[in-house]
Write a protein that binds this DNA or RNA. Structure first.
Lengths: 147, 147
DNA sequence: GTCTGTGCAAACGCTTTGCAGCCCT
DNA sequence: AGGGCTGCAAAGCGTTTGCACAGAC
């Protein structure tokens, strides 16, 4: 199962990504990108903070996530927990990145699902060994009043 | 577009529902059920609290929502906001209740979508006048390790 | 009368913000 | 040099919890 980014970035590559998106190459931003690019599943801010061994303040991570999101470098993912998760979205231009997740309600293990078709979903998920499945399909958009 | 419950409950009916699910007929529980049954869209705890004009403490509402959820009387809905919404799920047995939502990212207006099929979804949503659609389809379940 | 439900107040976890100093360009 | 970035501390918000009292059965 592929990583959402496909590339495990090293520090130099992370710096180039930042430059491409018009952001400064700070230590914290580089470290966050490296951590995200090595994760197979979306990470919470707390998880990123732990990965960085308290080398930076958690509020800085929140601020950087806001900047990354603004630049569409990451996706914010909500998996029914009481916090957000984030994953890199660097492949969005190629339209290769659209996917969804399965999370275990017991242990919170998260698996990726690459195909976006309901029939395929059901087959793939049962292959993954998940039971007692529940799903939520929610939309946001700009309504006629607001556009 | 139908209400998720179909029945607007009065106080007596709400009391009967509570009895059916083995819960006490307290003023607060009855009021919450009446408010939820009259709403076309899922409500947050804060919205319910406002509807009740501070006649009860907000922590009591949280506690009651937990009980209702335990009894599967309500669904907790996450629409990408930083709080949960709740809707009645009294028709679940008839399997008539499965549906999803569209929320406007500007004004938070929420519309219901009754059919659960991705092709139908796209047609229905464009008919509703929504633009710049984004969707999330997320699954939870019990993974092979945990079951 | 017993058990459950409630209001109040405090605490919790995640997230945001103000400020002073530091680092990137 | 100048503006963005950071750590720290405090506050914000939604939510949970402890306690003493009131209400349901």
């Amino acid at each position: 199962m592929k990583n959402c980014c496909d590339h495990k970035l090293d520090q130099t590559q992370a710096g180039e990504v930042l430059a491409n998106f018009g952001l400064n190459r700070t230590k914290t931003k580089i470290s966050i990108l490296v951590v995200l690019s090595h994760s197979k599943a979306p990470l919470s801010v707390v998880e990123i903070h732990k990965s960085l061994k308290n080398k930076c303040d958690i509020s800085t991570i929140f601020r950087n996530m806001a900047q990354f999101k603004e630049k569409n470098m990451i996706h914010e993912v909500n998996l029914g927990e009481d916090f957000s998760r984030f994953e890199l979205a660097l492949n969005d231009r190629k339209n290769e990145a659209h996917h969804h997740h399965v999370r275990c309600r017991e242990c919170s293990t998260i698996s990726l699902i690459e195909k976006c078709d309901l029939d395929l979903f059901e087959k793939m998920i049962s292959k993954l060994g998940f039971k007692e499945m529940e799903h939520s399909l929610e939309f946001t958009g700009i309504c006629s009043k607001c556009s």
